[in-house]
């Protein structure tokens, strides 16, 4: 039987988790202008959930189940794959963002948006996968 962490630890972690997630969102969308991007933001999101798992135990598992993590990881991969395949229907090659059907932007701006969508997909995939790895390694006996 694992001993439950003290009230101080749980309170501080519950206070920290939203700020970590906010910083993760900043890291994802700020990847165009500075240090950051999908991989880093996804890892930060996963860290926030893992921190909650370590301190809150089964309660965290109820709030964010590993099934949901699997769905999020698969959704990120699907988003990446769709952004790759959709331009092929509009006459461009695989992963060529200038063929995306967003007709109000053109050229470099469209590629800029494509990069943003790809980053979000990568972040979701990394987030889901890291939470999944933690859950399967830690097991379900709390």
């Amino acid at each position: 039987m694992i001993q439950q962490p003290s009230t101080i630890v749980r309170t501080v972690v519950n206070l920290l988790v939203p700020f970590i997630q906010l910083f993760a969102l900043y890291a994802i969308v700020h990847g165009h202008y500075g240090a950051g991007g999908g991989f880093q933001g996804g890892a930060l999101l996963a860290v926030s959930i893992v921190l909650s798992r370590i301190s809150n135990g089964a309660e965290s598992l109820e709030r964010f189940s590993s099934t949901r993590a699997t769905v999020i990881a698969a959704g990120g991969m699907l988003l990446f794959g769709l952004v790759g395949i959709v331009p092929m229907f509009f006459g461009a090659s695989f992963l060529d963002y200038e063929g995306l059907p967003l007709f109000w932007v053109h050229g470099a701006e469209l590629r800029y948006l494509g990069i943003l969508i790809i980053e979000v997909g990568i972040a979701l995939a990394v987030f889901g996968t890291l939470v999944l790895i933690y859950d399967s390694l830690a097991g379900d006996k709390w």
């Binding site: 165009h32 800029y112 494509g114 990069i115 980053e119």
Partner: peptide, 19 residues
């Protein structure tokens, strides 16, 4: 000029070498 992204690491990661 091609991707309007100042961070070259991101531009190469997600555009030039996205495959």
């Amino acid at each position: 000029e091609e991707t309007a992204t100042p961070n070259v690491v991101t531009a190469v990661l997600a555009d030039y070498r996205s495959f």
